[in-house]
């Protein structure tokens, strides 16, 4: 948008504000649980979108007072600047252990972690697997963009084979760097894992499905039957060195080949019988 176009819009808006008469019907607004400040995320980054989905759900379920979030180390370290709920910032990779500490003491609250792939799948894989293996009644929101974003684009455990990063400049070589790790497929067989799904927010349908998955996970937490993990295929315009639109293409053409979206483990029907009462 040019400056000229921008200023035209400002003028139109100014005019609109002066219209006397019936106000427009509000058809969409940000959830009140999302703090109305500028986000530090890069333009086109999916973090802001996923933050909004989470805060919409918390507002719609009216569970602001019952929810405690855990922020990781990574780009979303400042999640507590945007989410208007009580939160704790955890050391790198330790979110699942911190969430365990919270949930064991506050078993009737909703507790979720919000973690990237470096945080969860590299340094924090032990805490993640053991929390899930204990069946901690928490939700793990796992944003997988195949790269370390905050530290400017180093190789992550989820970096795609052949993908160039600052620490795999010739592309990820599986002989040297190993293979991209598929966390959802890895943890789903654990008896403590109640619901494991991988979603993406690359288009409107994906956004809807992701929101539904997160809603499910929050609802399932009331059953106290185990851990829910919602993996969301992320992007990284700055470190993938792509425009947001190119990122969406990369997500669809490359990321989803290694990380196909869909449910990986669904709760048994009998386990969901009491969901309404819970």
């Amino acid at each position: 948008m040019t400056i000229e176009e921008r200023s035209n819009i400002d003028i139109i808006q100014e005019k609109d504000n002066n219209i006397i008469g019936e106000p427009y019907e509000t058809v969409y607004q940000k959830p009140g649980t999302l703090i109305d400040v500028d986000m530090h995320y890069c333009p086109g980054c999916y973090h802001s979108l996923v933050h909004k989905l989470l805060m919409e759900i918390i507002e719609e379920m009216d569970i602001q007072e019952q929810t405690i979030g855990v922020a990781p180390v990574g780009c979303s370290v400042f999640a507590y600047d945007y989410m208007d709920i009580d939160m704790q910032q955890a050391a790198h990779g330790r979110a699942a252990a911190v969430a365990t500490g919270i949930k064991r003491l506050l078993p009737d609250k909703y507790v979720f972690t919000y973690q990237g792939d470096g945080d969860l799948a590299a340094i924090g894989i032990a805490e993640t697997i053991h929390a899930i293996n204990r069946g901690e009644n928490i939700l793990i929101v796992f944003i997988n963009n195949a790269v370390y974003g905050m530290t400017s684009g180093q190789m992550a455990p989820t970096t795609l084979t052949g993908m160039q990063t600052t620490t795999s400049p010739a592309g990820r070589d599986t002989n040297i760097h190993g293979h991209p790790i598929k966390i959802s497929e890895l943890v789903a067989p654990l008896p403590g894992a109640f619901y494991v799904t991988r979603q993406a927010v690359n288009n409107a349908n994906g956004v809807r499905r992701t929101k539904k998955a997160l809603q499910n996970a929050f609802n399932y937490q009331r059953l106290k039957k185990g851990t829910c993990l919602v993996e969301i295929v992320g992007n990284c315009p700055s470190n993938w060195k792509m425009t947001p639109i190119e990122c969406t293409g990369f997500v669809e053409e490359q990321m989803m080949k290694t990380f196909p979206v869909g449910d990986i483990k669904l709760p048994k029907a009998e386990d969901l019988k009491n969901l309404k009462e819970a």
Partner: peptide, 19 residues
């Protein structure tokens, strides 16, 4: 709770203390 490591133990303490 018996944790999977001392790293996890102290981070669970962090979570509980933070609450």
């Amino acid at each position: 709770l018996q944790a999977e490591s001392e790293v996890a133990s102290i981070n669970m303490v962090y979570g509980a203390a933070g609450a």
